[in-house]
Design a protein around this nucleic acid. Sequence first.
DNA 1: CGTGAAATATGTATCGT
DNA 2: ACGATACATATTTCACG
Lengths: 153, 153
Amino acid sequence: MALDALDRRLLEQLQHDASQTNQALAHAVGLSPSACLKRVKRLKEAGVIVQQVVLLDPQKLAPSLHMVVEIIMARDHRALYQRFVERVMQEDEVKQCYQVTGEVDFVLIVEVVSMEAYDDFCDRVLYTDDNLQKFRTLISRQRNKFVTHRALS
Amino acid sequence: MALDALDRRLLEQLQHDASQTNQALAHAVGLSPSACLKRVKRLKEAGVIVQQVVLLDPQKLAPSLHMVVEIIMARDHRALYQRFVERVMQEDEVKQCYQVTGEVDFVLIVEVVSMEAYDDFCDRVLYTDDNLQKFRTLISRQRNKFVTHRALS
DNA sequence: CGTGAAATATGTATCGT
DNA sequence: ACGATACATATTTCACG
């Protein structure tokens, strides 16, 4: 699906604030409400807009720990990788999973309520995978930045 | 601010789908629309809900590269760290910044449109910082998972 | 893409528990 | 203090130009 300048302006807006009314959005990009609504609807149907969510302030919730986990696989085999990815994706603690090049094979961002919970996670997900050779955990003291928006070319 | 079971159910819902109408939300958690609206408003005012955004499908947009960047500082000094954090936070390419413990000091998730753009970023942000000792870049071939929701204790 | 009117939802005041 | 009901206001949504 081709995105024109108007679509990009809409997405730019919505990536920063999706709570504004359709009217406000229309005004912000210089469209009539109906035309604006049609475009947003089209972007949703086309799958460009995947989801609309609220982001919460971690400080206002029960404290949690973020871990950056680097994983080195024993063998670079497609099916084994695939199995690992599927395993990892269904775990709630895993918030992000990157497949990377170099010495490391995967980087996970894992969020847990406590060190014990992380131990459990490692036992359950990491130590049991027989293609996992080694992993290293970087414990996050602080998440200084977290934004979800993407540049639109 | 204390969150009761009803607040948690609301946040649970909104973290997965913030596009639903207040009526639908009210019904989902078993409240009247007005009571539901009051609670959501309160959660926003209290700063528990920080932002409402749309998430886009990376596949549907112009391709981009994610980098996981591990940074080791020369000296563990608070003011120098602070300066680096502030520098890094204002860069659009930096989507996430974690301050971690261990050999590595910072982990960044950086998103760029091309390898050249990443070179530029390194020149501009990393190579110019005089407290930065060393960094390692893990190039993401694929982002297998990315979710924003948090567990609510 | 814009206009305008019907359908829906939001927001507020008031009452009841 | 919190939720429900009902009503006024605002927004969404659709047919048509």
